[in-house]
Amino acid sequence: MQVTLKILRFDPEKDKKAHFKSYEIEADPLDRILDALNTVKWYKDGTLTFRRSCAHGVCGSDAMRINGRNRLACKELVGDIGKKITIEPMLGFRILKDLVVDMEPFFEKYRSIKPYLINYEDPPATERFQSAEDREIFDETTKCILCGACSGSCPPFWSNSEFIGPAAIVNAHRFIFDSRDQGSDERIAVLSQSEGVFRCRTVYNCTDACPREIPVTKAIEQIKRVMLYNR
């Protein structure tokens, strides 16, 4: 099928402002958006720049705004999106070139919630035991691939560059609700700052955007409740 890709282009060496450029290409309905982007890059315009690595929805490199919604280009089929496809870099991030955005502020916020197991006891001889039920509690939030689709879809994140964003909160949830972890207080102290979890407006865009189907908004609300109940 014939599709029109309208892509937001920005070359920091030439352009002052980002602008749209359209490309007519032939694509199979079962092609992914990533394939369509490759068609453009390989056969039409080699200067088109985007991130991708695994091409199978695992690495989280190619989150972008496809027809107004944040999606992984490698997980969306052309046939599902339609004949007119608008592709932009995610909102709320500084554009480096074309669809490539600066993820450093995002990872800085991610690191601030201490995304690693904190346990002050001596490690046991075998593993730290955890029941299947305890593991189940935070199962959803272990699935995050740090693509940034949730944070980049969040209106408070767009307007407020200081807001920690849903992705960091999801990863805090993964450890706060882990029975083996003892760092909850430290993480909650980070999240309860003025630009932390309470800048969330329960917009639910993050839940829609997550390519791993993590119930992001629910995880955020659980953290708010834990803060309330533990006071």
Partner: peptide
């Protein structure tokens, strides 16, 4: 930015 950790203790709960 405020999220850069310098090893300082987190600020008290807001």
């Amino acid at each position: 930015s405020r999220w850069t950790r310098t090893g300082a203790r987190p600020r008290p709960t807001n």
